[in-house]
Simulated scan of single mutants.
Amino acid sequence: MSNRTFRVTVRGVFDSLTAEQRAELLAHADEHDVLRSAFTAEGHLTYDVAARAAFTFRFLDSGEEEEDILPASERAEAAARAWLAERGYGYKNLRSSAEDLSQAPLGKRQRREAAKKGI
């Protein structure tokens, strides 16, 4: 069996933040800038509460079968909920999308390399 890599994106909107919570998020905004975003096993959070209340978590997970993508999505949503709850941040409209990288189309450079190798 092959090991599959999944990218899971969990999106939502902060809801009913207190002034203190908003200030805390703004104080840490540089760490959560979209330009620093990455898919990680522990999840990486990006937001810009100065512009809007939306946030995105990016998770990296893996599985053996194509069907393992659903549990990976569920784990990612649970981790996002736990992170938000641990800090007392309200949220709404939490939803996730996942991509199996083994099913992703090759980019131009990857196609060229595959052609050179005769794959």
Rank of each mutant, 00 (worst) to 15 (best):
E20S: 15
M1R: 13
N93T: 09
D48R: 03
Q21C: 07
A78Y: 06
T18A: 14
K116C: 01
V10T: 07
I69G: 01
Y47M: 12
G63H: 09
E67C: 06
L45E: 12
L70K: 01
F39D: 05
V8A: 00
Y47I: 12
V13W: 00
E77K: 12
E20W: 03
E66C: 00
R81C: 01
R95S: 07
F55I: 15
V8Y: 02
E24A: 06
A19M: 14
T18D: 12
K117R: 15
G118T: 08
D30A: 13
P105V: 13
G107Y: 11
D100C: 08
V10Q: 04
F6V: 04
A41L: 08
A85G: 10
A53R: 13
A79F: 09
L17K: 11
A41C: 03
E64T: 05
D68A: 02
S97W: 11
E31Y: 06
A104E: 00
S16K: 12
D33R: 04
E67A: 15
S96Q: 14
Y47Q: 12
A19F: 08
R109H: 08
H28G: 02
E66S: 03
T9N: 04
N3C: 14
A27Y: 01
Q21P: 00
I119R: 05
G63P: 05
A85D: 13
R81P: 04
F39K: 02
A79L: 14
L106I: 00
H44W: 06
A76H: 13
D61M: 11
H44L: 06
E99R: 14
A50G: 10
R111M: 14
